[in-house]
Amino acid sequence: MAKLFWGQIKIEKATALFFYEPHSEMSRIILSLKYLDHPETGELMGRMLAEEANRDNFFDGIDFIIPIPLTRKRQRKRGYNQSMEIARGINEITKIKIISNAVIRKTFKTSQTKMNRWQRQANVKDVFAIGKKFDLNNKHILIVDDVVTTGSTIIACAQKIAENYNNVKFSVMSLGFTKH
Rank of each mutant, 00 (worst) to 15 (best):
K3F: 12
K3V: 10
I9P: 01
I9E: 03
K10A: 13
F18R: 08
H23Y: 13
S24T: 15
M26Y: 05
S27Y: 02
I29S: 03
L31Y: 14
K34C: 07
Y35V: 01
L36W: 07
L36Y: 14
G42Q: 07
E43L: 11
E43T: 12
M45G: 02
G46M: 10
A53Y: 04
N54R: 12
R55G: 05
D56P: 00
N57P: 00
N57R: 14
N57M: 12
F59D: 02
I62S: 05
I68W: 01
T71S: 14
R72M: 12
K73T: 14
K73W: 00
R74D: 12
Q75P: 00
R76S: 12
R76V: 08
G79K: 12
G79Y: 10
Y80D: 01
S83D: 07
I86R: 04
I86N: 03
G89P: 00
E92P: 00
T94W: 08
I96L: 10
I98S: 07
I99Y: 08
I99V: 15
N101D: 15
N101H: 14
A102D: 05
I104G: 01
R105H: 04
R105I: 06
K106E: 14
K109C: 03
S111Y: 01
T113C: 04
T113Y: 01
N116Q: 08
W118H: 13
Q119M: 11
Q119Y: 00
R120H: 09
Q121A: 13
Q121Y: 15
V124C: 08
K125C: 04
K125I: 02
K125E: 13
D126P: 00
V127N: 05
V127C: 12
V127M: 09
K133H: 10
F134H: 13
H140I: 03
H140N: 13
I141H: 07
I141L: 11
V144D: 02
D145Q: 07
V147W: 05
V148M: 10
T149F: 09
T150G: 04
T150N: 07
T150C: 04
S152T: 09
T153H: 02
I154E: 03
I154W: 06
A158D: 02
A158M: 05
Q159S: 09
K160E: 15
A162M: 09
E163A: 11
N164S: 15
N166E: 14
N167A: 11
V168D: 02
V168R: 01
S174T: 15
L175C: 05
G176S: 04
T178M: 11
K179S: 12
H180C: 00
